[in-house]
Simulated assay, not measured.
Amino acid sequence: MTRSVKLSRVGTLLADHDYPTTRRDAMDAFDDVTLLFADGQAPMDETLSEVPSDTFDSAEDLEMELYSQLPIEAVGEPGQSEGEG
């Protein structure tokens, strides 16, 4: 069964995992998760396979590395800002 998780909820999902962990263990734990972006989606395990670190001490560490691998379109329209001024 595949789980779909909005990108805004990925931190909650990662918090339920045991740490420290390895990239391989995280990939195995989340191999049934599809990340839902503002514009598109991606298998979480494939995204995790691209992170540069091999180990993570916390959910926050893993989340930061995961976000670093996402395309700009994952969080909204390119060039979109939270407002000016």
Rank of each mutant, 00 (worst) to 15 (best):
residue 69 Q to V: 03
residue 29 A to D: 15
residue 54 D to L: 08
residue 58 S to G: 00
residue 2 T to Y: 11
residue 30 F to Y: 13
residue 30 F to H: 05
residue 60 E to M: 04
residue 61 D to P: 01
residue 50 E to V: 10
residue 5 V to F: 01
residue 35 L to P: 02
residue 9 R to H: 13
residue 19 Y to I: 01
residue 29 A to Y: 05
residue 45 D to Y: 08
residue 42 A to M: 13
residue 45 D to T: 10
residue 70 L to G: 02
residue 78 P to H: 06
residue 52 P to Y: 04
residue 29 A to E: 15
residue 36 L to Q: 04
residue 8 S to Q: 11
residue 82 E to C: 12
residue 21 T to V: 12
residue 49 S to K: 09
residue 45 D to G: 15
residue 16 D to L: 15
residue 2 T to Q: 08
residue 22 T to H: 07
residue 55 T to E: 06
residue 11 G to E: 14
residue 70 L to S: 04
residue 44 M to I: 14
residue 36 L to W: 01
residue 15 A to N: 09
residue 11 G to F: 09
residue 33 V to Y: 01
residue 62 L to S: 04
residue 46 E to W: 04
residue 57 D to L: 05
residue 65 E to A: 11
residue 20 P to N: 02
residue 37 F to P: 01
residue 59 A to Q: 00
residue 57 D to H: 07
residue 27 M to N: 06
residue 19 Y to Q: 00
residue 47 T to D: 11
residue 85 G to W: 15
residue 76 G to P: 01
residue 76 G to L: 03
residue 47 T to H: 04
residue 35 L to K: 00
residue 60 E to T: 06
residue 32 D to C: 03
residue 3 R to P: 00
residue 63 E to I: 06
residue 47 T to S: 12
residue 52 P to G: 03
residue 18 D to R: 12
residue 36 L to G: 06
residue 67 Y to S: 09
residue 80 Q to L: 14
residue 12 T to L: 15
residue 68 S to N: 04
residue 78 P to F: 13
residue 63 E to Y: 07
residue 80 Q to E: 15
residue 47 T to P: 03
residue 41 Q to F: 14
residue 6 K to E: 12
residue 14 L to N: 08
residue 40 G to T: 04
residue 34 T to G: 00
residue 46 E to Q: 13
residue 43 P to I: 14
residue 52 P to D: 10
residue 20 P to A: 12
residue 53 S to K: 05
residue 75 V to K: 08
residue 29 A to N: 10
residue 58 S to K: 03
residue 59 A to M: 00
residue 55 T to L: 13
residue 29 A to S: 14
residue 52 P to A: 09
residue 6 K to G: 05
residue 13 L to A: 12
residue 68 S to K: 03
residue 61 D to Q: 00
residue 60 E to G: 06
residue 56 F to L: 00
residue 4 S to Q: 05
residue 52 P to L: 03
residue 3 R to F: 08
residue 50 E to H: 07
residue 7 L to M: 07
residue 48 L to A: 10
residue 18 D to T: 10
residue 43 P to F: 06
residue 57 D to T: 09
residue 15 A to T: 13
residue 17 H to E: 12
residue 24 R to Q: 11
residue 39 D to M: 14
residue 4 S to F: 08
residue 32 D to L: 13
residue 49 S to A: 11
residue 83 G to H: 08
residue 25 D to W: 04
residue 31 D to P: 08
residue 22 T to E: 07
residue 77 E to F: 11
residue 22 T to V: 07
residue 40 G to F: 02
residue 74 A to P: 00
residue 40 G to M: 13
residue 66 L to C: 08
residue 22 T to N: 04
residue 51 V to Y: 14
residue 50 E to G: 09
residue 5 V to H: 02
residue 67 Y to P: 05
residue 43 P to W: 03
residue 79 G to R: 01
residue 69 Q to P: 07
residue 4 S to W: 06
residue 13 L to D: 02
residue 17 H to S: 07
residue 66 L to P: 07
residue 55 T to I: 14
residue 73 E to W: 06
residue 9 R to T: 08
residue 18 D to I: 09
